[in-house]
Write a protein that binds this DNA or RNA. Structure first.
Lengths: 255, 255
DNA sequence: CGAATGTTTGATAGGCTTCAAGTGGGGTGG
DNA sequence: CCACCCCACTTGAAGCCTATCAAACATTCG
């Protein structure tokens, strides 16, 4: 089921030309065109390749595939994961509308992980070679691109902190609070949203098992901090969850 | 004690002008100027700020400090770490000569972690604003910079895999093999080197305790895979360590 | 309706942490 | 010069958090 695009006047969505451009995309305030004037946006538009729709579980790219494009998510959700020699996989992130996929492929000219749609989704193909050409003409774009890459670095550092130092309860609270903030930034409810990923995916991302995630959900529910029905989630006590995430509030045992 | 600079003809080192330039730096094949012709290297030289020496345990920058410069390590070693609200710290990386510090600060205009010298070290200050100007004139430099940032992203993804999926033994093997490869790339011995960081730092980085690191060192020594004397380390069975790191070889219990 | 998949819950086990004590080297001050 | 102390490290014992194993339950889809 495709995601609704909130906060975009219907008039804009009805104009095909605009709809197919960055200016008309509901995500342009969060995505690559952030901060560009309309002139520069149209320059960016001119290099954007075709849009690509993916069904749930469809793969956008695969590890070791040659790198040609970055991808901006128009709507939908993705996960990215690595597979090591032993066949174990580690999910390195969940991405949503307005976020950029593929930056880890720049250094080696081939993709370093797999990207898979968690639901029916659509991305903009951004040919990286042409983007590089554009950097010379649009310094604002270049600076914003650097910020995006840097942000990805800090995001991963935060995950390292999570995986290296936190107990299961805190990890899970961080995960929920993070999702909440990102939905809020997109104009969705901060307290009520749908988990697009399976319990197994969450566990893999957080360095825990599916059973642990299930138990955490049950415990948080029993404490009255959240309510869950399948993948429909509501944060009933965001303050407590934030305190848990920050480490202000103590961890209680899993039993 | 300052590190020796290997593989640089003494003639070069004796010319002060060259010594102070990227062209004369033993790390220019690994560092920012990689792949630049001599013309572009001198352009890069012209924007490089002052060199800065740091004593062991001295801090290069601190979290939340305003971001002005990237730093290229000329010699020595650093660690970078985050501190969360609860005061817990997580080391996000160990950096050595030829590597770049501070890229995580671009997105927020302030440093996202602390950087501390593990021994007497020297860095080149690279004013980021001037570097950005130079990007417009030297596309090769820009492309290499993107590769460096992307490489940092993939490095962190590998750490996420390590922290999320691996047992203590495998983590430690990955750590040793990684150090070995980086020293080899710098012309040092791949099998024999000094650990510049404390056991506690290693443990913090790998998501383990100092006691676990100590036990791992003892076990690896007992197995004949390494020899250790204080911080002097020799890999006696690199193949086994690589197999452990890859997950090909099974983990044995810690007892 | 039945098989397959995803999830929940319980019992047990194990790997690593925590707590504790001891070792050893380097530096300092007498 | 040497005794002392401090710090980093090592080693042992016990406990806990989470994984693993197992089974039941729910849901989806053919």
């Amino acid at each position: 089921m495709p995601q609704p695009l909130p906060f975009v006047p219907a008039a804009l969505l009805n104009v095909a030309a605009l709809k197919a451009s960055c200016a008309g995309c509901s995500m342009h305030q969060l995505c690559l065109p952030m901060g560009l004037d309309s002139d520069d946006i149209s320059r960016l538009d001119s290099i954007i390749g075709k849009r690509r729709r993916l069904a749930r579980d469809e793969r956008l790219y695969q590890m070791d595939e040659p790198f040609r494009n970055l991808y901006a998510i128009r709507f939908g959700h993705f996960k990215t994961y690595q597979v090591n020699a032993g066949g174990e996989q580690q999910i390195t992130g969940f991405q949503m509308a307005g976020e950029l996929l593929g930056m880890d492929a720049i250094s080696g000219d081939r993709h370093h992980c797999d990207a898979v749609a968690l639901e029916d989704s659509e991305v903009c193909e951004i040919p990286f070679a042409r983007l590089e050409e554009l950097f010379g003409e649009v310094p604002t774009l270049l600076r914003h691109f650097h910020r995006i890459m840097s942000q990805e670095i800090t995001r991963e550092q935060n995950v390292m902190l999570l995986l290296g130092n936190m107990r299961a309860e805190q990890r899970f609270a961080v995960f929920l609070v993070n999702l909440s903030a990102r939905y809020a930034a997109r104009g969705y409810s901060a307290s009520s949203f749908q988990l697009r990923m399976s319990r197994e995916d969450i566990g893999n991302y957080l360095g825990l098992t599916i059973e642990s995630i299930s138990r955490l959900l049950s415990r948080f529910k029993k404490q009255g901090w959240i309510s869950v029905d399948k993948r429909e989630l509501t944060l009933l006590n965001p303050a407590m969850l934030k305190a848990l995430a920050a480490g202000t509030e103590q961890c209680s045992p899993m039993a």
